[in-house]
Simulated assay, not measured.
Amino acid sequence: MNSKILLGIIIGILGGAIGVIAISGSQIFNDVSKEGLGKISPDPIKVLPLEVGLGGFEVLSVTEEEARIQVDFKITNPNFKSVILQLIKFELYSDDTRVLIAQIGDRPEGAIEGSNYYTILSNNPQIIGETVTIKNTGNDPQFWSALSSGTVNWKIKGEANFNLSSMTAGHENIVPFEFTP
């Protein structure tokens, strides 16, 4: 057989295989779940949501001008594959009054300048936290008095934004959470 014909057949087969993978992407190879690793799957890949827990909450200091609070989240990834946690956005409430909005990490927009995200490995909980500062504006002396005496009824509401660490599978995923420390 002519070597040019054989080379043309090989290139055609490789091109066809690359085209099928490029068109169907993550629909063919499910590497997210342990059961689907390396198997061809016509079903859409199901990404399990991250499990967000409260890892710790502590009022570090309270002065007349400001209060410093440490908020830690315990993040667990139930997927077989690692995920990228881009952003944890949360709000602190005293009873039903919002006191503070804060975030950990960044959501990439446009050109990526640097990485400010967390890689969460499979079934290996990670503690991610932030020390936040609340300024005393003088508008709510009752809250500041309760904060100074340690009698605030705190509530934390927020969401964690994550995606798979794969170019071919997954999309933006959001997990809402709410805690009362």
Rank of each mutant, 00 (worst) to 15 (best):
L60G: 08
N153Q: 14
L85V: 12
R68P: 00
L87R: 09
V20M: 09
A17Q: 01
I13W: 13
W144N: 02
L54T: 00
K4L: 10
A160I: 01
V47H: 01
I45Q: 02
A17G: 03
E64N: 11
V99T: 09
D95Q: 15
V59P: 00
L87V: 04
S122N: 11
Y93M: 03
V59S: 00
L50K: 04
E130K: 15
V71C: 05
G105I: 14
V99D: 03
E51L: 11
G53N: 14
I112P: 00
V52Q: 02
G158W: 04
D31L: 05
P108V: 15
K34A: 09
E64Y: 04
G15H: 04
T151F: 02
I5E: 10
I84M: 06
I23A: 14
F162N: 01
L60P: 07
F143A: 00
V62N: 04
G12L: 15
N173V: 06
N2F: 05
N30K: 05
E66F: 11
N161C: 11
G53D: 15
Q126Y: 10
L92K: 05
A67M: 06
P125Q: 11
L147Y: 06
G19E: 01
E91M: 08
V152H: 02
N123G: 01
E109F: 11
F29R: 01
G110W: 09
N124V: 12
D106C: 07
N30C: 02
P125V: 10
F143Y: 06
Y118M: 08
S82P: 11
I134L: 13
N163D: 08
F80D: 08
G38Y: 12
K155G: 10
D96F: 05
N163G: 07
L100W: 04
D106E: 15
I28N: 11
V132P: 04
I5M: 15
G56H: 06
T168R: 08
G19P: 00
S115V: 14
S149F: 09
V132K: 07
T97I: 11
T131E: 14
L92S: 05
K46E: 10
S33K: 09
G138E: 03
K34L: 13
I45E: 01
G19I: 04
D72I: 03
E178M: 13
F57M: 10
Q103Y: 09
G38T: 15
K135R: 07
Y117C: 00
S149Y: 11
K4A: 13
N163P: 00
R107I: 14
G138D: 03
K157N: 12
L37H: 05
D72M: 05
L48G: 02
